[in-house]
Design a protein around this nucleic acid. Sequence first.
DNA 1: TGCGGGATGTTTAACGTTAATATCCCCACG
DNA 2: CGTGGGGATATTAACGTTAAACATCCCGCA
Lengths: 355, 355
Amino acid sequence: MSSEQPGRGPVPHGHVTLSQVARRAGVSAQSVSNALNNPARLAPATLERILATVAELGYEPNLSARALRNRSSHLIAFKVRPSRPDKASLLMDEFLYALNAAAVAAGYHLILCHAEGDSLAEEIKAYRNLLTKVSVDAFVLAETHRNDDRVAALRSWGVPFATFGRSWDGDDETAWVDVDGRAGTRAATEHVAAQGHRRIGHLGWPVESEIGQERRAGWFEACTERGLDTDLEVAVPDTLEDGRQATHRMLDATRPATAFVCASDTLALGVLRALHERGLRPGADVAVTGFDDSPTAALVSPGLTTLRQPIDLVGRQLIESVENLIAGDPRTPRHLLLQPELIVRGSSLPGPGAP
Amino acid sequence: MSSEQPGRGPVPHGHVTLSQVARRAGVSAQSVSNALNNPARLAPATLERILATVAELGYEPNLSARALRNRSSHLIAFKVRPSRPDKASLLMDEFLYALNAAAVAAGYHLILCHAEGDSLAEEIKAYRNLLTKVSVDAFVLAETHRNDDRVAALRSWGVPFATFGRSWDGDDETAWVDVDGRAGTRAATEHVAAQGHRRIGHLGWPVESEIGQERRAGWFEACTERGLDTDLEVAVPDTLEDGRQATHRMLDATRPATAFVCASDTLALGVLRALHERGLRPGADVAVTGFDDSPTAALVSPGLTTLRQPIDLVGRQLIESVENLIAGDPRTPRHLLLQPELIVRGSSLPGPGAP
DNA sequence: TGCGGGATGTTTAACGTTAATATCCCCACG
DNA sequence: CGTGGGGATATTAACGTTAAACATCCCGCA
């Protein structure tokens, strides 16, 4: 554009304001404010009259003004990460919906955070920006890891925040909600053991992954408790192809596994593919379990037994946590470990099992 | 809590304000504001000095104050829908990321909208709320349909908005970006025709779906142009099971299809399952194509040929559209039809094709 | 010498809300 | 019959920013 922007400043907008309600109800603006935020300070009759006027005019408080005055925007920031195309899971999608629903129910809104690239520094800068420019009240983080700089930054600023995923460096200050991966793989292992399997293998992630370690531990403990072998174990990157190749290697062993408890649906799908290539029937010949109940798990044939995380609950609890922190609740931050649910499908049942 | 909330009002916060910069630079607050919003009004030397001070103190404008003053929050609202567990597609996940990235690049932020249940009235109320309380600058809608009340409401309020998905009621006022489903299925049909298939079936959605109609049209046109039969056509709900059953019916016909062009990956996966049940090899015996390039499409064996939507571009274009509308650009709203990309995998190639 | 006018910068006021403070009025109590 | 207390409401000021109006200076020109 060559010319100056049309400098049209604030224009009439038709939104109802406090003073309009006040005028109409014959009281001061402050009384209307009190009617909404501090009803006890008003005489019952006045209160009722004001509230009636509020309803009549359809007044809605302007959050920008409120934010300016109170330094609180009633906005909670969440960082969306690029979805990895190789990942089968809709977890983040469902999580975002659940988190937003909980936030709105609590009178907040979710604002999304974006950082270019994968740089942690960029991400922290983005958080800082949201804090200083938008005055967000709190942050929710997902996928934290050991010695997470983001956590350190948020804490140093004194902002309320909670994470989906426990704090791995034994830090008691951070509020978190997590799903018990260990109990999950333990349940899966016990389930296939109950089907009579004695050689139960584990397909997991490299040791760098704290989540992977937890999931492995569930398998290991269940096997140990029942006196089953624990030598059938492989750690690979979380891709279908890695899972497939690892399965072939494990099936070439002298005494191969008859069941595979996997750290993810992606790996489990790799197992299914390998079985398919060998003419083995999932369920009937070899039991397979995954983790996360991805859409694919229900779509493949036979269905993949897997573990479902209680995502709705995670969202609600996280919002509750940051609410408490925002309110300055002096109680120590909450740590909440929720249980995943075992979804049993054909891949771990001795049913007909397609060849 | 039994006692009153600790009424601690605004507290010192350490954020740098305009007047602090002004004091430090020895100018008025307005000059600092001008330095940022209207640099031409300042002498070059002053401008430089102010900008240096801004950088030195790390000043960031407070968006709440700006929003209050300008009636513009630099927030764009987007409604997230619950993800359907039976749907394989990550489309919305990717879309959200792309949209947010584009919004941030343009100096905006995405705020999420939530409405209880599926009620349109609730949803419109939620939009209204966002508009009056948060002063969002614009809305982005996905999954619009014919005679969409939400579109009507937004237009009646005069808010800038754009939709992912064309306006189906021939309305020229609405800015939209869409992906050409017709061209997509046409490309898929031409692709399997090039493999030598003459009996190409279409597995589509019920006629209520405008998108389904478009996708069907691409198949129909491609077949007609090449003199191929168009009698192999079924419309079913978008579930794997419906796709599976429909496939069996179509394969029981006297002259069955040798190729299936489907309106979705979900239906195509149903076809794959049916083929599997009959011992037919996808690719080698029967070609199959889907739509949307869901994660499952790459994970199944053999890979599913499908159509990928240019989601990043959709996001960028939508943001550009609402930016233009917010700026009051008098040009007519943009309508943009983008092309999907055919991803060829084993399900439509005469390769080895697993039995 | 005086004066119009551009370039530069400052002052004022307002956006809508709310904590803190002030005011008013009524009743109980000395 | 004054006075103190307290409940109900009003007034003030401030949150940080910016459009609009206003002040100031300097230059060119009649």
